[in-house]
Design a protein around this nucleic acid. Structure first.
Lengths: 341, 341
DNA sequence: ATGAAAGCGCTAACAA
DNA sequence: TTGTTAGCGCTTTCAT
């Protein structure tokens, strides 16, 4: 039974309850140094009996070691970032490190605030989405003196390390595949997110390749808010009514692409004969659709794993001359909505 | 420019750079007490110039105040918990409080570990999913001496406060609606998760009502892993081949329900005439489907908001005789897959 | 194998 | 308005 005092328990309480010095209690609780089996047992018993929970704040201050890894991502509400977190978790679970997640909502100022807030807890490392940050944020990252891994994107220069894919290249490859398949009248749909740099880069790579063949995007639409699947449906209908000549629709993410696909199937339109479709991300959801949408994997899980690995390795071996820039190269999944060749 | 030393900056550095005592610097940085405008400016300038980031660890230890709220949820990989987090965030954003998320993967031992880990940072409050926890977890929650809100479920006794819906009632209501609509041969599909107590309670409520009408579930199937949409598809096909007499399928979540719906539409089966369908959660995704699946909202956003509100209020006003048990009552969304009456 | 002393970087409480 | 003095609860370091 625990004493029902209001004051949280301290090492001292355990020390008194077990008749052992605070120092020894501390050693037992951290499995450090030599402690006789007898005292170890007494201490453990006392701690459990009291229901003692160590105070990491005091511990961290004294040891100036904090096993926290700050993870900053733009959003939790599309499946992509949770999957990155899963990857990070998988790797950190085998270490002492604990991820702590902050969300920036794609807003640089908010990212800056969140970063500041997290750095003030003196984490051992930072994993942060994207290569674009405010000057202040970049300065903080550099000044923190801890491993920093920028993830998702490799089209740019990292503060320290980076793990991701080239979204520009992803856009280019999809454009090439589409042209090779013979499509010529292309529409684009995406999110209304000027600050989603990865979507922007994909788009840039995409149009760049089209331009080389003298082709331009013939119609485009952007949405914000609401159910992506429903928006994909609506936007597709509207776009095809507006631009019936289109023979290919490129979506900036799989969810709206799936919405478009469902709409076209509803309408009995021949996919990919009459109209081809492609999305981006390789979300699991697509497996359950009546046809598999063409897409490109964003390597989310792997990115999370590699990033966490870099942090863990650096902390374990602070010496090594680390140059950790990992570019993963996803390939196109043609599915059933993009003619092959 | 910051001095490129390896040692992190301290208040003392700012104090020296600005020629003001540490105490006054501290006051400026926290907007506390009276500080002349002149010194305030000097301090702020010095801090910015150096790129000082306060050390919350030291601050928290000294003040024994930590504006962290521990949030413990079973998973990030279905849309339900991220949405709860959104609600929590919305409310906490207007306060000093910061949510910190831990994931238990539906495993009590892991929940216990995560809780222990989080409590060791001495948060100001805890929001934790579910009412079922290990004895040790419950003991920790009680002993922590901070506000604890158990969320999602209200079928049980909370340690302190709770916010959620009655899943048993949700199951009962759906069963009633199904019976009233005249369906009699019912199949059930769900996740293979003995530890998802909310799904279990819905199922219990569901079968309880059926039993009163002398009806039993005639077939059932459970899945784990993989794309829920795809699993819903497969399981539905298999079940109907096995049990062609079924005229209603009740799914434990909307994703597998959506998979089933897509399958039935593919097959040209009359929904809800020949077969009725219902899921659970009210996920946004359903809006984009060719037919709207019948479902019941889990009130995710509202649960998050109310829980955060309770924590914030208690901390603002530690006196009030709080008895915070909030039961939200979702209603059935009939959609297009459940006959009305 | 165990203990004592000092101090991590900050803030509460009081003094000037 | 500003500064001084004691810790917060632990761990480091050194002694025993």
């Amino acid at each position: 039974m625990s004493l029902d005092s209001k004051r949280p328990l301290t090492l001292r309480d355990v020390s008194e309850a077990s008749g052992v010095s605070e120092m020894t209690v501390s050693r037992v609780l951290r499995n450090r140094g030599d402690v006789s089996d007898a005292t170890r047992k007494r201490v453990l018993a006392a701690a459990k009996e009291l229901g003692y929970v160590p105070n990491k704040i005091a511990g961290a201050l004294a040891s100036s070691r904090v096993n926290l890894v700050a993870v900053i991502i733009p959003s939790l509400s599309n499946m992509v970032f949770p999957e990155v977190l899963t990857g990070i978790n998988q790797v950190l679970e085998d270490t002492e490190l604990q991820p702590v997640v902050g969300v920036s909502d794609y807003i640089p100022e908010k990212e800056e605030r969140v970063l500041y807030e997290m750095l003030s807890w003196r984490p051992s490392g930072v994993i942060i989405a994207g290569l674009e940050h405010s000057d202040a944020s970049r300065a903080m990252l550099r000044a923190a003196g801890i491993p920093v891994v920028e993830i998702m994107d490799t089209d740019g220069v990292p503060v320290d390390a980076m793990v991701g894919i080239s979204h520009r290249r992803a856009g280019r490859e999809m454009a090439n595949a589409i042209l090779k398949a013979g499509y010529e009248h292309i529409g684009f749909m995406g999110t209304k997110m000027p600050l989603d740099h990865r979507a922007r880069k994909r788009f840039e790579g995409f149009t760049e390749v089209l331009a080389k063949s003298g082709i331009e995007i013939e119609d485009r639409a952007f949405y914000s808010g609401g159910s992506a699947l429903a928006k994909g449906r609506e936007m597709t209908q509207e776009m095809l009514e507006r631009s019936p000549e289109l023979d290919f629709l490129y979506y900036s993410n799989d969810m709206i692409g799936a919405g478009g696909l469902l709409y076209l199937l509803d309408q009995g339109i021949d996919v990919p004969g009459q109209i081809g479709l492609a999305g981006f991300n390789g979300v699991e959801l697509l497996q359950g659709l009546p046809r598999r949408l063409a897409t490109m994997d964003a390597c989310r899980l792997e990115i999370g794993r590699r990033a966490a690995k870099i942090i863990a390795d650096r902390l374990a071996e602070p010496e090594g001359a680390h140059s950790d820039n990992v570019t993963l190269t996803p390939t196109i999944a043609y599915g059933d909505t993009l003619k092959r060749r």
